[in-house]
Design a protein around this nucleic acid. Structure first.
Lengths: 121, 121
DNA sequence: CAGGATCCAATTCGATACTG
DNA sequence: CAGTATCGAATTGGATCCTG
């Protein structure tokens, strides 16, 4: 019988109310954590890894580049010896803080309430 | 803007955050939308589908069962003829609202700011 | 140490079809 | 209408190795 080619999937870009717009930024693993740890001020790659012991180098650099390309995070090279880079929130990034804070607050309540699994970072 | 004014990096990283706990609930596709649309009051399956025209029946019922199993959403059978079911937020679900609202608020700002893709509601 | 490249198992989610 | 079952494409994110 003939080869059956599947119809192309619609693959709609994220959905309906404005949550999609925000979740496109915050929705991936570790993203809110990264933003959270940057919220106190610029931080270096290794510091962030230390903040989140479970994250892999790949994940972290991937997320940082994602966020940079979205204008949420800014990478600045610090002239030192050896020169190193620091990551910080942009203004756009700062605008996300209320949401992150709300997420953190609810997360804490959920954790108490459910008395559940430990989380690193 | 040239180089960002580099403030001293954070000496005191924020304490462990509970982001993961919350994102485990909100992190999957459509979840915040579903909660959002339930926040105005109980709603039936078909109504929710209508609220989110892009969601598939499978997704919706999957998300509803997820949320039910997490105690966020409650399914109650309404005695009518024929009897039908309604979904509503539990108290735990209501506790998530501040986060959802913050996400929606930021989403709207992002949309304005980026002047991007259209989204309804 | 900071980060990229590659490989791969697991999950996610859309389309489709089916049931009461 | 209200939902479930199955299939499979695409995405995810972890592990590992490689680089300057």
């Amino acid at each position: 019988m003939a080869l059956k080619i599947r119809k192309n999937r619609a693959k709609n870009p994220p959905p309906t109310c404005a949550v999609g717009t925000c979740m496109q930024v915050l929705g991936k693993a570790w993203t809110p954590n990264v933003i959270w740890y940057l919220s106190a001020g610029p931080r270096r790659f290794g510091e962030l890894r230390h903040d989140m012991p479970q994250i892999s180098a790949k994940m972290l650099s991937e997320r940082l580049r994602d966020l940079e390309s979205k204008g949420v995070v800014e990478r600045c090279v610090v002239p030192s010896s050896p020169p190193s880079a620091e990551y910080g929130l942009t203004e756009l990034g700062l605008e996300l803080m209320p949401a992150i804070e709300a997420i953190v607050a609810v997360g804490k309540r959920l954790k108490e309430r459910m008395g559940q699994a430990a989380e690193a970072a």
